[in-house]
Simulated scan of single mutants.
Amino acid sequence: MTATPASSAAAPPVVDRETWLRERDELLVREKAHTREGDAIAAARRQLPMTLMPTVTVRGPGGDTPLVEVFEGRRMLIAYFHMWHDGKPYEHQCEGCTFSTCHMQMLDYLHARDVTYAVFCEGPYDESAPFAEFMGYRFPWYSAKDSDPALADSRDFGFIACYLRDGDKVYETYWTTGRGVEALMTTYQALDLTVYGRQENWENSPEGWPRVTGHPWRLNGRPTAQWSRPGVAPR
Results as ranks from 00 to 15, higher is better:
Thr101Phe: 08
Ser8Cys: 03
Glu31Asp: 06
Lys88Ile: 00
Gly123Gln: 08
Thr98Phe: 04
Thr98Tyr: 03
Trp84Leu: 00
Leu107Gly: 11
Thr65Phe: 07
Met83Asn: 11
Arg113Ala: 10
Arg74Phe: 05
Ala40Arg: 13
Val115His: 09
Cys102Lys: 14
Leu27Asp: 10
Met76His: 14
Arg75Asp: 14
Glu122Arg: 11
Arg22Pro: 00
Leu107Val: 09
Arg22Ala: 08
Phe99Tyr: 11
Leu110Gly: 07
Thr116Ala: 11
Leu21Gln: 12
Glu69Met: 08
Asp39Tyr: 10
Val58Gly: 02
Cys94Lys: 03
Asp126Val: 11
Pro54Ile: 15
Glu37Thr: 06
Ala43Lys: 14
Pro49Arg: 06
Thr55Ile: 13
Glu127Pro: 01
Ala10Leu: 07
Ala10Thr: 06
Ala44Lys: 09
Tyr125Ala: 00
Gln93His: 01
Glu23Lys: 11
Val58Cys: 03
Gly73Leu: 02
Asp86Lys: 05
Trp20Ile: 00
Asp86Cys: 01
Glu31Val: 03
Trp84Ala: 00
Cys102Gln: 15
Leu28His: 05
Pro54Val: 15
Lys32Ala: 07
Val119Ser: 14
His111Phe: 02
Val70Asp: 09
Gln105Trp: 01
Val15Thr: 07
Val15Phe: 10
Thr19Leu: 10
Pro12Ala: 13
Tyr80Lys: 07
Glu95Gln: 10
Ala43Asn: 08
Val15Leu: 08
Glu72Gln: 10
Thr19Gly: 06
Met50Asn: 02
Gly60Asn: 08
Met50Lys: 13
Glu31Cys: 04
Arg22Met: 02
Met76Ile: 02
Ala11Gly: 05
Gln93Cys: 02
Ser100Tyr: 04
Cys102Arg: 14
Cys94Val: 07
Val29Ile: 11
Arg74Gly: 04
Arg45Val: 10
Met76Ala: 10
Pro66Ile: 03
Met53Asn: 03
Arg113Leu: 09
Gln93Ile: 01
Ala79Met: 12
Ser8Asp: 12
Val29Cys: 00
Phe120Tyr: 13
Pro124Asp: 11
Pro89Gln: 07
Gly123Arg: 08
Leu107Gln: 15
Ser8Ala: 13
Met50Cys: 02
Pro89Tyr: 05
Gly96Ile: 00
Glu72Tyr: 02
Cys97Thr: 06
Val68Ala: 13
Tyr90Ile: 03
Lys88Arg: 04
Gly63Cys: 14
Met83Ile: 06
Val58Gln: 04
Val58Lys: 03
Glu95Ala: 15
Arg46Tyr: 01
Ala33Leu: 15
Gln47Leu: 12
Asp86Arg: 05
Pro89Ile: 05
Arg36Ala: 15
Gly60Ala: 10
His85Ile: 01
